Simulated scan of single mutants.
Amino acid sequence: MAESIFIPEGATKKEKYESILPQIESLISSETDSYANLANVTAVLKEAFDFFWVGFYLVKKDQLVLGPFQGPLACTRIGLGKGVCGTAWKEGKTQLVPDVDAFPGHIACSSASKSEIVVPGFKNGLVWIVLDVDSDQLDDFDLEDAYFLEKLMELVSKHC
């Protein structure tokens, strides 16, 4: 069965988020396979915003392990507190990084990545997954992205 997402042309970033979030919820609430849902979420985000890299890392024992993503080759495993993703996992809060080269301990999976936002997802009060979004532009993410991506991760945690 083919799925489609409506992304309004010429819309602001806020309007795009407001348009895709309910569509994503509808898409993932009717599918029981978490991996399929995560894959579709990354595809929608890539299509809507043309992010350089977007994907998930799942907590597996003592590390984050690469999950579904869109973009260039990625790091496969990340330790607790390591890089931006490991920091989001350890601290349990969104990491908004305008310049990855200025982030202590940044893990350069791609030298083309310039800015990043990582948002944790929670189940039973614990981080179980992080959403990682990279840009090839400096300072490409802001509090608006953080707000809407946190809302997205609430949906992901509820339905995956």
Rank of each mutant, 00 (worst) to 15 (best):
D50H: 11
G86T: 04
Q70V: 13
L45Q: 02
G105F: 00
I78W: 10
G105E: 04
V44G: 01
G67N: 03
E91M: 10
E47D: 15
Y57G: 02
V65C: 06
D99Y: 12
F103E: 02
A36N: 10
V44T: 05
C75W: 04
L80Y: 13
Q70H: 06
K46N: 14
K61Y: 11
Q70A: 03
Y57T: 05
A36T: 14
K46D: 12
K90D: 07
G92Q: 06
T87M: 03
T87C: 01
V97Q: 10
A43I: 06
H106C: 04
L66C: 09
N40F: 08
N40G: 11
T87Q: 06
N40P: 00
I78N: 06
T76N: 09
L38V: 08
F103M: 06
F69Q: 10
P104W: 05
V54E: 01
A102R: 15
A39P: 00
H106D: 04
N37E: 13
V65F: 11
F51M: 12
F52C: 07
V65D: 01
D62C: 03
E91T: 12
L66A: 14
A48S: 15
P104T: 10
L96S: 06
V59E: 00
G71N: 03
D62N: 14
G55E: 05
C85M: 02
P104A: 13
F69A: 09
L80A: 05
H106V: 03
F56V: 10
F49E: 09
G92A: 04
Q95A: 08
K90N: 06
V41E: 02
G83M: 10
W89F: 08
N37K: 15
P72W: 03
W89E: 01
D62S: 14
G55V: 09
L66D: 05
G105P: 09
E47Y: 12
A88G: 08
D99R: 14
W89I: 09
A43K: 15
A36Y: 14
F103N: 04
F49G: 10
R77D: 15
I78H: 08
L58N: 07
N37M: 11
T76P: 00
G86M: 03
V100R: 02
G67C: 06
A102E: 14
V54D: 00
K82D: 09
A48Q: 07
T94C: 07
E47F: 12
P98F: 06
G55A: 07
T87L: 04
E91H: 05
D50G: 08
V100C: 07
P68I: 08
P72K: 11
G92V: 01
A43T: 13
A39W: 09
F52T: 07
P68A: 15
W53E: 04
Q70T: 00
V97E: 08
G55C: 05
V54I: 13
T76Y: 05
K90C: 03
H106R: 13
V97W: 11
L96W: 07
L38T: 07
V97H: 07
G71A: 07
L58W: 01
N37P: 12
D101P: 00
I78S: 10
V44A: 02
D101M: 14
I78R: 12
W89G: 02
K61D: 12
E91G: 00
K46W: 12
W89Q: 02
F69T: 10
L73C: 05
